[in-house]
Write a protein that binds this DNA or RNA. Structure first.
Lengths: 138, 138
DNA sequence: AATAATATGCAATTCGGTTGCATATATTAC
DNA sequence: GTAATATATGCAACCGAATTGCATATTATT
C-alpha cells in the first residue's frame, strides 16, 4: 500500500496525519497478525512508548483498530473492517491465538455464530477467541 | 457447602489443604461471578498478595479454575466444571462481562456452538466472551 | 512426635499502562 | 508561504498487577 493511502485512511477517521501514526498504520496493514504495544515498540524504536500508546488509543477511539481480548494480560489490537466507526464496531470474525508462537490473528472469513444470552441480559459485543496451533507452527 | 467438602475438592486435585486454599475455594464456590486476584485481596486481607497469587496458580495448574480472557488486562478466574483435569480443560460455556458493574460470570447453561478453523490450524480451546449489561444492572 | 516436602510472608523487582507538562509539529487562516 | 492555533510528541515520573528469592511456618507422612 502507498504511504499516501495510509495517510488518507488516517485522515478519513478525523485524525491528524503524523509520522508515528503513518508508521503504525503501515505496520498494521502489512502485518497479518494483531499487534501489541510492545510489538510496536520493538519495530518502531524511533518513537517513545508513550507516543505509541497514545497512537493506539487514538486509533482505538476513531475505530481504526479494535482490542482483542486474550488471557495473557497484554493488550493486542487488530485492524477494523471499513464497516467500523467510532460509535459502532462490527467484529463478527473469530480471533485465533497460537499457543506456540503467541501470534494473534483475525480470521476474517470465519464469522461468529449467533448467540443468545439469558433473559434480562443485554448483549453488546461478542468476542470469540480460539487458541491452538497456527498453520506456520504446525 | 461444608468446609470439609471444600477441603475434599482441594485434596482431590492433588493439592495440600491449607487455610488460604480453603478460603479461596470457598469464595469461588459461593461467588456467582468470576474473581480476579484483587477481588480476593479485598475479601481475604489476612493473606499476603503473593500467597493469593500462588494459590490461584496452583488452582489453575490443577484444573480447579480457569482463566477467562477479557480486554481489561486484569486476569479473572472462574471455577472449572468437574469435567476438567490438569491436562484437559472443557470450557464450552459462554462468559459474560457486564460493561456497567464489570462483573464477569460464566453462563454455564449457554454452550458454545461448533466452530471450525482454517485448514492447517489446530484448534485447542474456544473462548466466547459476550459483553453487555447484566441482569442486575439492567 | 519427628521428618521431609511444601506453603507462606516479606522484600524487592519487573513490566505494562498511565498522566502532567514543556516542546515540537500539523492544520487553518491569511 | 507565513503566522496563529490546536494537537501530538518526548520525557520524567507514577501506579498497580505480576513475579521471584529466600527465610520461616505449616502440612502430610512415618
Amino acid at each position: 500500500m502507498e504511504v499516501s493511502e495510509l495517510k488518507a485512511i488516517i485522515k478519513s477517521h478525523g485524525l491528524r496525519v503524523t509520522d508515528c501514526r503513518t508508521d503504525v498504520m503501515g505496520h498494521f496493514i502489512k502485518n497479518k497478525g494483531a499487534l501489541s504495544q510492545s510489538d510496536l515498540e520493538k519495530r518502531l524504536e524511533k518513537y517513545d512508548r508513550v507516543t505509541l500508546y497514545r497512537t493506539l488509543h487514538s486509533f482505538l477511539d476513531s475505530g481504526i483498530i479494535h482490542k482483542i481480548p486474550n488471557d495473557t494480560g497484554i493488550a493486542t489490537y487488530g485492524l477494523c473492517h471499513n464497516t467500523c466507526s467510532p460509535e459502532k464496531h462490527f467484529h463478527d470474525h473469530i480471533h485465533f491465538k497460537c499457543n506456540s508462537c503467541g501470534t494473534i490473528e483475525c480470521l476474517d472469513d470465519k464469522k461468529v455464530p449467533n448467540i443468545t444470552v439469558p433473559l434480562g441480559y443485554k448483549m453488546e459485543h461478542v468476542n470469540l477467541i480460539v487458541d491452538g496451533i497456527c498453520a506456520s507452527c504446525a
